[in-house]
Design a protein around this nucleic acid. Structure first.
Length: 770
DNA sequence: ACGCGACGCGCC
DNA sequence: AAAGGGCGCGTCGCGT
């Protein structure tokens, strides 16, 4: 059974909003609402109404539409009485700034879940319909929720908080976010959307008959008739609450279930990191970053010229062997995949050109027909160089330069990226639309498109050596801790141990300030090893990084391990923890489940039904069909011994093939186990770093003094926070900013350090303060 | 026309 | 023996 644990498909991390991802892109790009399938909007809506009524008709009396103020107010009275409410919003797009709020979905215990239409329109005339609650009144009721400190239950709270803030002017704070809770309770959950979670955990897997999301796809909720939409909408508020009821004991510190299930760590992270962070992130996204359209324009022109040049150069190089290309095309006839001219951005065609036409010997045994950066740069041929040059420019243009202006918000003219608070399974943030975490930094022209608002300056503060410091803390290695406490450069310290040399001989610069290339190299080697360990890298890959032989890399690696025994111990402990319990933890208690660490190295099943010695008189044929019949221990052991005796993949294949002739299928889990093993240390370090940065965001985002000084957070890039403030406050803000980030790391056994840069644009020239 | 996986590549 | 952790996104090419 454990074979089913093979690398689950990545979950859809977006929240469970009504519209599909595609629709959101269209809305964000401000191309307006387009209805899929051309015309027929009216027909489609009639169909939807019929479908919804048929399938959700059973809920008709369970939910209610509120169309008058008195009933709305009374409903909020009930919520205040209960002290708890679940809230969901329906909108016509996924952009909280420009969307129209179609209506509110509310639920509180002992009452029907309700839908309150605010801005529905007639799908025939497009004009707002009658009998809807006014924004003013809705605002009043939302404010009562805040004033009476009702616990607000949401799913993907950041979205609804932003919608209600932007459209009604009230800033709610969620008490519970079912999405973040689900991500903490099981980051390996195949689907973390509301309906899937509710179905799985609240309905024993028996959900509603059909998927409404696909049904509504492309149709704005404002256009759905209220008498149809309310069934769907009100139900969301109710299931949001039911999911909360299910999740609550697991993530409530002190609840017996939480303690029993060993969830006090995740509960701490949920209550003291993730939940308090939501409003900070919501505000950050609403603020957005100012954008330099002129620079974007200039870069676009510049790079499009460069692109054209690179393309021409490629064609010219191809012409040098044009005959060979033609010959190939002719030879393959109808099966020919090589276009004329060769499509420079098609990996398939590039592979044909390099390996079939030019007959270049493969440089990588694993990828004999690879066309990636690494492989191309090893191929000594002008055409390979031309491809690399073209790719570099094309990537910059399509992903960044031309993309950014198109994604600026039509209303604010700024970039409002989305941050998924637990985007990564390790606990890290992820960013999308656009991804602000992979903007090129080597080529800093691109980053300069992002700038401070007029009269403001940009402040960027990053943790210096965040992950190695966390490594020092978690490993408790005395020498590592001492190095940081003494204010030393850990990489220099490690190099000095590994090479058996003086500290000063391993520094990038000498006492007098002149550079020391040998020192720099030694420090670099140590850094590569420490980071390599962080990432679970092997010695061979480290050797590749350092451009030294594997033997040499192994030597340095061994010396580092001997010099810092805590490091070795930490790696072993982390792996043992994952093997014994199936998970590892961060400094603050977040978990990363690694079920693959508990897989048996090999699994045995009968194939093709019965084994050879199957006797139809005495054995039941059905037993063999699902691999139900256990293979006897002696046979298993025989093969395990054989497999363990060899290290070569080829020989293992031979053994597996031999087993097959006996009707036995051997599944080798070695690859999955190795992958999980690499994640053990990495997840703890990366996850702890994420916790730390998040704590810093909470301190920075809630700091009263920074607020007074007009400081606003704009971006989070893993170990770096970026904000802006009025120019005249830059000095005080930059000091306090760094100080708060350091404070967030006060629980570590090593000191933290933050470097702040004050600029006009991202990666711009540092400004002189005062 | 669209969905999806593979590949390639930008960042920390 | 071989071994790079975590993302999002653009393009291609295949399948529907």
């Amino acid at each position: 059974m454990s074979g089913l644990f093979n690398l689950p498909p990545r979950a859809t991390k977006a929240g469970d909003s009504l519209l599909a991802k595609k629709a959101s892109k269209a809305a964000q790009a401000n191309v307006g609402i387009t209805i899929k399938g051309g015309g027929g909007l009216l027909e489609r809506i009639s169909t939807i109404s019929a479908m919804v009524n048929k399938n959700l008709g059973k809920y008709k009396d369970r939910y209610e539409v509120i169309r008058d103020e008195e009933t709305f107010e009374k409903y909020i009275d009930e919520c205040i009485k209960n002290g708890v409410i679940s809230i969901d919003t329906e909108t016509n797009s996924l952009d909280p700034i420009t969307c129209t709020l179609a209506g509110l979905c509310l639920y509180t215990t002992g009452n029907k879940a309700v839908y309150i239409p605010l801005h529905h329109v007639s799908y025939v005339t497009g004009i707002e319909i009658e009998n809807q609650i006014s924004d003013e009144f809705a605002t009043k009721q939302m404010q009562r929720i805040v004033d009476n400190k009702i616990k607000v239950i949401m799913f993907n709270a950041k979205f609804d908080i932003r919608v209600i803030k932007n459209q009604l002017g009230v800033e709610l704070t969620a008490y519970w976010d079912g999405y973040l809770a689900a991500r903490l309770l099981n980051e390996n959950e195949p689907e973390s959307n509301l309906k899937a979670l509710h179905k799985k955990y609240c309905m024993q897997g028996e959900g509603d008959a059909f998927g409404f999301d696909s049904l509504f796809k492309g149709i704005p909720f404002t256009h759905i008739p209220v008498n149809t939409g309310y069934l769907y909408a009100a139900r969301d508020a109710e299931i949001t609450y039911e999911l909360y009821e299910f999740q609550r004991p697991f993530l409530t510190e002190g609840d017996p279930i939480c303690v029993e299930r060993d969830l006090t760590g995740p509960a701490f992270v949920f209550n003291h990191i993730e939940m308090p962070l939501i409003n900070i992130v919501a505000e950050m996204e609403d603020t957005g970053v100012a954008f330099d359209f002129d620079l974007a324009d200039r870069l676009s022109k510049e790079y499009n010229i460069k692109l054209k040049e690179a393309e021409d150069k490629f064609y010219k190089k191809c012409d040098n062997f044009g005959e060979a290309l033609d010959k190939y095309r002719e030879k393959r006839g109808a099966a020919n995949k090589l276009q004329y001219p060769v499509n420079i951005s098609s990996p398939t065609q590039i592979a044909i050109m390099l390996y079939d036409v030019l007959e270049i010997k493969p440089v990588d045994k694993e990828k004999p027909r690879g066309t990636g950066e690494e492989i191309l740069s090893k191929i000594d041929h002008p055409v390979a160089k031309a491809i690399l040059e073209y790719r570099g420019i094309a990537k910059l243009l399509s992903t960044y330069i031309d993309k950014m202006p198109a994604i600026t918000n039509p209303k604010t003219k700024r970039i409002h990226a989305s941050f998924n608070q637990i985007g990564a399974d390790t606990g890290r943030f992820s960013s999308s639309d656009p991804n602000m975490q992979n903007i090129p930094s080597h080529n800093n022209e691109i980053r300069k498109m992002f700038r401070a608002s007029d009269g403001y300056v940009l402040l960027s503060s990053d943790y210096s050596a965040q992950e190695p410091r966390i490594m020092a803390h978690m490993s408790k290695d005395e020498k590592m801790i001492k190095a940081y406490r003494d204010g030393k450069d850990l990489y220099v310290e490690i190099a000095s141990m590994a090479y058996n040399m003086l500290y000063s001989e391993c520094k990038e610069f000498r006492e007098d300030g002149t550079s020391n290339p040998e020192g720099k190299e030694r420090r670099g080697a140590a850094k590569a090893i420490v980071l390599g360990v962080c990432y679970g890298k092997g010695v061979a890959a480290i050797a590749e990084d350092l451009q030294v032989t594997k033997k040499k890399a192994q030597e340095i690696y061994d010396k580092v391990m001997v010099s810092f025994p805590g490091l070795k111990r930490f790696m072993e402990e982390s792996e043992a923890m994952a093997r014994d319990y199936g998970f590892v933890t961060t400094v603050w208690g977040r978990k990363r489940r690694l079920p693959n660490m508990q897989l048996p190295p090999y699994e045995f099943t009968y194939i093709g039904g019965a084994p050879k010695d199957f006797d139809p008189l005495f054995d039941d044929e059905d037993e063999f069909d699902d691999g139900l019949l256990e293979i006897d221990e002696a046979t298993k052991q025989k093969y395990i011994n054989l497999l363990n005796r060899t290290y070569s993949r080829k020989e293992k294949e031979v053994i597996k093939a031999k087993a097959k002739t006996e009707g036995i299928l051997i599944k080798d889990n070695g690859g999955y186990i190795a992958e999980a093993t690499r994640q053990c240390v990495n997840s703890r370090i990366q996850g702890s770093a994420a916790d730390q940065t998040k704590l810093a965001m909470i301190l920075v985002g809630n700091d009263a003094r920074l607020k007074e000084l007009g400081f606003k957070l704009l971006l989070a890039v893993h170990d770096e926070l970026i904000g802006e403030c009025p120019r005249e406050n830059a000095k005080e803000v930059s000091e306090r900013f760094a100080q708060l980030m350091v404070e967030a790391a006060k629980d570590l056994a090593v000191p933290s350090k933050c470097d702040v840069e004050v600029t006009e644009c991202w990666y711009g020239e540092p400004l002189q303060l005062d």
